[in-house]
């Protein structure tokens, strides 16, 4: 019962995040929304794993959190450089 409410709340949050990802005026808004959706998905998987008592699924949530982080950083690198192969300008050192 309580888990149904929690899962529904997470789904509502994911929906709001997806709406922002569709509406977002700038590319950064979209990445922000996708980052949030990824975090929420990982939490959702953890909740489902605890409810169904299949603890193997918590590993999936762990991996999802990792891949979400790496994916966001990779996409940011891509949009700021236009490709994946250059090392990037050192804009911080000026």
């Amino acid at each position: 019962m309580i888990f149904t409410v929690a899962a529904l709340a997470i789904l509502v949050t994911i929906l709001l995040g997806l709406a922002r990802a569709l509406l977002g005026p700038t590319i950064y808004d979209r990445i922000l929304a996708v980052n949030m959706v990824g975090t929420k998905t990982s939490l959702l998987i953890a909740v489902v794993a605890v409810v169904s008592e299949r603890t193997d699924m918590i590993d999936i949530a762990l991996m999802y959190a990792l891949i979400n982080f790496i994916g966001v950083v990779a996409v940011l690198k891509f949009i700021s450089q236009g490709n994946f192969y250059t090392a990037g300008k050192d804009e911080h050192s000026k």
Binding site: A9, I10, V12, T13, L16, G17, R20, M36
Partner: peptide, 19 residues
């Protein structure tokens, strides 16, 4: 339960916040 419900409410609050 209190923790989980509070977390769920905060999540929805954040979702409203980005709009």
């Amino acid at each position: 339960w209190i923790f989980i419900i509070a977390g769920a409410l905060l999540g929805v609050a954040g979702g409203i916040g980005i709009h």
